[in-house]
């Protein structure tokens, strides 16, 4: 690999603007370019077959389950995932391979496993991903489906306003001073 300091970089036509210097500032959905509209609903699944969609929905709901607030399915996350995946061939390959992996771990039917077994399959993948191991199709799939579930959930009305309690900018007549005790 070339020495980074010696690498000539052409940044391209669109310049830097005031933006967060992190991938965290971006969402998967930003690159999905769905048709314009002002509704939160990402529409009916167009990429996943009904059986696949059921598995994706189950996995998303295991990643962000219903607690005292709705989980991923209750927030419409599976439809968001379908919207992101339908326009991107790389995502499609990752999801196809991931669904095949889940199938191979469950005698062909992930949904037929008990919840404990389903969680065990995902835990192995999650632990590997958290250690930075993205070699296998299962790991690649888990990272993608978790990222999209988190993006979709925490930008939904349920996730942002009900779960996190954020309702948008509040208008204040004065900014309060902070009273943080010194330890």
């Amino acid at each position: 690999m070339a020495d980074r300091r010696e690498a000539l970089r052409i940044i391209g036509a669109i310049g830097a603007t005031c933006a967060f210097p992190f991938s965290s500032g971006e969402l998967y959905g930003q690159h999905a370019h769905p048709p314009e509209g002002k509704q939160a609903d990402a529409g009916k699944p167009q990429f996943f077959q009904p059986g696949e969609f059921a598995v994706i929905s189950r996995v998303a709901d295991l990643i962000i389950p219903a607690t005292d607030t709705p989980g991923a399915v209750g927030a419409g996350v599976p439809a968001y995932i379908d919207m992101v995946v339908r326009g991107n061939e790389q995502h499609q390959a990752v999801f196809r391979a991931g669904l095949a992996y889940l199938s191979s771990q469950s005698d062909g039917d992930f949904l037929a496993l008990t919840e404990v077994r389903q969680i065990a399959v995902l835990t192995a993948l999650s632990n590997a991903v958290d250690k930075g191991d993205l070699k296998g199709p299962g790991e690649k799939f888990f990272r993608a489906v978790k990222s999209m579930s988190a993006d979709g959930y925490y930008t939904s009305k349920v996730g942002m306003s009900v779960e996190l309690g954020y309702h948008g900018g509040t208008v204040l007549s004065e900014y309060p001073s902070c009273e943080v005790p010194e330890h």
Partner: peptide
């Protein structure tokens, strides 16, 4: 808010 838009 992000949820007012399909791609968030």
């Amino acid at each position: 808010m992000p949820f007012e838009f399909p791609d968030r």
